[in-house]
């Protein structure tokens, strides 16, 4: 049994928060760079160059890429042979939230989390959203995403009939992107969840977003490319000013569902798709 201390978890989470706020993952950056080469709309091209400049300043001067430093979502795969030794904290959630509290203060990040009705700020950017899975082994894989609400606000779920055609699903996705329009900071990364239950499908769409930028030749590869092609015909472009690039990438994640239904969910990330991953 491998022992992991509270301190090690705190140190790791803080590192991921820092990485995600000041730099983009390589595969995300690559998508943006190749889009700039393809774009012909002059306004959109100009803004893509400003986006590069923004990334440069953020990294060099440690100014967050975006002022919406998000609600933190943490996806963990914990090996069954790992023993997380809780001493000072009464739960894993509490431990992770302590790390986030420290990181958001030390790195001068915006604390955007409030009570839902009273709108009272918690002052710590916590609680975070925690998803844990137990897997075989003695490692912990941690995937952290900063979800800004410009794009989170455009998430949608639809319960289709069992034999709905893929064109109907495509149309729903296109409608979601149109609705998100310039408000959610296009070009987008799009995650699509298909199957499961209503809650599961939204979760799947988030998991799909975590795969953004990766080259995965899944069974849905052609469908993902087809959706991307259709979305890029919308001419929304960077900041909604028109152009060839409305989305950088589409990823689908599926799960078996009930004979009576076909849930579909769409999660969108703005161009500043901030996430970080580590295995310890």
């Amino acid at each position: 049994m491998r022992k992991v201390s509270e301190d090690e978890i705190i140190k790791t989470i803080k590192l991921l928060v820092k990485q995600a706020n000041f730099t983009l993952k390589k595969e995300i950056k690559k998508k943006i760079i190749s889009a700039e080469k393809q774009e012909i709309n002059s306004d959109s091209k100009k803004i893509l160059k400003i986006i590069f400049k923004n990334l440069e300043i953020a990294q060099k001067e440690k100014i967050p890429i975006c002022q919406d430093t998000g609600m933190v979502e943490v996806f963990l795969k914990i090996g069954n042979n790992v023993h997380i030794n809780l001493k000072k904290y009464s739960s894993f959630q509490e431990l992770i939230d302590e790390a986030i509290t420290q990181a958001y203060t030390e790195f001068f990040l915006r604390k955007s989390i409030v009570s839902p009705i009273e709108r009272k700020n918690t002052g710590t950017n916590t609680p975070s959203i925690l998803w844990t899975e137990i897997v075989k082994g003695e490692k912990i894989n941690i995937f952290l995403i900063l979800k800004g609400f410009g794009s989170e606000n455009v998430t949608r779920l639809k319960m289709f009939n069992p034999f709905s055609r893929t064109e109907e699903i495509d149309n729903f996705i296109i409608e979601c992107v149109k609705k998100a329009g310039p408000n959610a900071c296009p070009p987008f990364f799009i995650g699509i969840g298909i199957g499961g239950t209503s809650d599961k499908t939204v979760f799947l769409s988030k998991q799909a977003l975590l795969n953004s930028g990766k080259t995965l030749k899944t069974e849905y590869f052609n469908w993902e490319e087809e959706i991307k092609r259709k979305v890029n015909k919308l001419n929304i472009g960077v900041c909604g000013l028109g152009g060839a690039i409305t989305c950088f990438d589409v990823k689908i994640k599926s799960f078996p569902t009930h004979i009576a239904g076909l849930p579909v969910s769409v999660s969108i990330s703005c161009w500043a798709h901030r996430m970080a991953e580590i295995t310890i």
């Binding site: 100014i63 919406d68 955007s112």
Partner: peptide
Amino acid sequence: YVGPTPTATNKIIGSCGPTTSH
């Protein structure tokens, strides 16, 4: 329409892009 990040030491302001207007 802006809600900046906290100002770090020796800086004028934090990150300060626009929020959604609607």
